[in-house]
Nucleic acid binder design. Structure first.
Length: 482
RNA sequence: GGUCCCUUCGUCUAUCGGUUAGGACAUCUGGUUUUCAACCAGGAAAGAGGGGUUCGACUCCCCUAGGGACUGCCA
């Protein structure tokens, strides 16, 4: 049997980092088993779905390299098929028409909530109220689940799924294990609204079945939904898919990840925080899944090793320090031109003069090994991007005293006279200069660094001179030499 | 309120009844050094609490505490 997995976001916003992780797991599993990974846009809620959100989600997935193997299925285009299944379910006795209006249902919930509030405010309820509350809190059972009960003439109805009166349902989930729930605890959910449109619960099942999905990998906020959806498979006589409900990602404080923790949208990780997609994949994979002591897991290995059984049940917290360290690893490996293109598109780089951009391009092999992300790369590149006159900060300013300025003045002609402007040549010249006037490198290095970089982080001083180029380097030294 | 799930260093995790409880990131100390980083050496750091079962429990069972999910004519 060919494995078919899917990612099925609802297009109401951006691609969430947690969603990206479940997409990654689905994608990996399909790749690991030589199967297919499909995309489905769950846009049945027309009020909240937007084309912009669809584009944003696809953009995020493509960036992460998690595109589907076929064009995405738009759930909204399949409403007729969903309704067809709902009616088939009614015919088979697995569902029924129910005329109870939405307002009645809402009134039930409101009353239950009021009673709960009263209880927590007053500590207890009268026996009658308590019984009423418990009754209201039980799953709703419509009087019309009795097939003998006649429907009121002309009243609009919804189609409800019928749950058996007794017994229980058992799910063997690849992550959650084997869990049972009794049918009595399950509500009889609505399949078709009174306007004839399908609900999410119905649409998911029908689409998964029709798309041939064999393994449903999704967030564990859907775990209990599995018990509500399975009776649809049973009612239609369809084979059940395998399930894997993966835990949600939490923020550093252990609470469900939200805006206040910082970045929740994957495009922020790309555009603002400056991470690489391959690093995101590696980090997200290790968040809740492991393979012995392996930390750096390139895609080939991930595909070779990934299996649903290694997934943890407990939610994992996002740790930016670790993400940085993984990203740093992949930055060092990344192609120079690629990194330059990514960097130059950033807001802090866009407006820079071409001469400086070229300087960065040339310095990329040295810059990329020193930064954990593109933000840090910009920081590490400051000694190349800052314009004259270089502002001296902190300790750098302290280095530039009269004596040191004199040494710079003495050194400058020797540098200017160098026939070859290369790292070894400069290193050699600096050593000779120090030997001639009887000082250690420590007497000239710090001040040279100070006037060249202003105190910004930078590589080896000889390399700094090379990367700056003759003219810029001499100009910066002249500012302070005397 | 009900049903279900989770809990090993600060964080991500290994362990699948017998280990000095391992690794990674972060952190600390020392080394190297012209800054930062890198690098090298080393350190500190964990089984939520309480009961069982067992010759033996992080591992199995129960209770408690804490966290989470669901309980919509939303998805």
């Amino acid at each position: 049997m060919t494995v078919v997995t899917r990612f099925a976001p609802s297009p109401t916003g951006y691609l969430h980092i947690g969603g990206a992780r479940t997409a990654l797991f689905s994608w990996l599993y399909a790749r690991a088993k030589g199967g297919k990974f499909l995309l489905r846009i769950e846009d049945t809620d027309k009020e909240r779905s937007t084309q912009a959100a669809i584009d944003a989600i696809q953009d995020g997935l493509n960036w992460l390299g998690l595109g589907g193997d076929e064009p995405p299925v738009l759930q909204s285009t399949r409403a007729d098929r969903h309704a067809e299944v709902a009616h088939a379910l009614v015919k088979r006795g697995a569902a029924y028409h129910c005329p109870v209006p939405a307002e009645d249902l809402q009134a039930r919930r409101d009353e239950a909530e009021a009673l709960q509030k009263k209880k927590s405010a007053e500590g207890s309820l009268s026996a009658g109220e308590q019984a009423r509350m418990e009754d209201l809190l039980k799953p709703f059972r419509s009087p019309w689940r009795d097939p003998a009960r006649p429907l009121p003439e002309g009243a609009p109805t919804v189609v409800r799924l019928r749950m058996p009166d007794t017994g229980e349902l058992t799910v063997s989930d690849n992550v959650q294990g084997t869990v049972s729930r009794s049918y009595a605890d399950l509500d009889e959910l609505i399949l078709l609204r009174s306007d004839g449109t399908p609900t999410y619960m119905l649409a998911v099942v029908v689409d998964d079945h029709d798309m041939g999905v064999t393994h449903v990998i999704r967030g564990d906020d859907h775990f209990l939904n599995t018990f509500r959806q399975l009776p649809i498979y049973i009612g239609m006589g369809w084979p059940r898919p395998d399930y894997a409900h993966v835990p949600l990602i939490h923020g550093p404080d252990g609470k469900k990840l939200s805006k206040r923790h910082g970045a929740t949208a994957v495009d922020e990780y790309r555009d603002i925080l400056g991470y690489l997609p391959e690093a995101m994949r590696n980090y997200l994979l290790r968040l809740g899944w492991s393979h012995g002591d392996d930390e750096i897991i390139p895609d080939e290995k991930a595909i070779e090793w990934f299996d649903l059984t290694g997934l943890n049940k407990a939610p994992a917290r996002l740790d930016f320090a670790k993400l940085d360290s993984v990203n740093k690893h992949y930055m060092a490996l990344a192609d120079d031109q690629r990194l330059f293109d990514l960097w130059v598109a950033r807001p802090e780089a866009k407006a820079l003069p071409d001469a400086i951009k070229t300087r960065i391009r040339d310095a990329m092999p040295h810059l990329k090994t020193r930064a954990a992300n593109l933000v840090q790369l910009s920081e590490q590149a400051r000694f190349l991007t800052d314009l004259k006159p270089i502002q001296l900060t902190g300790k750098a300013a302290d280095q530039v005293n009269e004596e040191a300025r004199g040494r710079l003045a003495a050194l400058l002609p020797h540098l200017e006279g160098l026939p070859e402007w290369s790292e070894p040549a400069i290193k050699e010249e600096l050593a000779q200069f120090c030997a001639r006037i009887g000082i250690g490198l420590g007497k000239i290095g710090p001040v040279l660094r100070a006037v060249l970089t202003g105190g910004a982080p930078a590589p080896d001083i000889s390399l700094v001179l090379v990367l700056l180029g003759r003219n810029e380097a001499f100009a910066r030294i002249r500012e302070y030499a005397r």
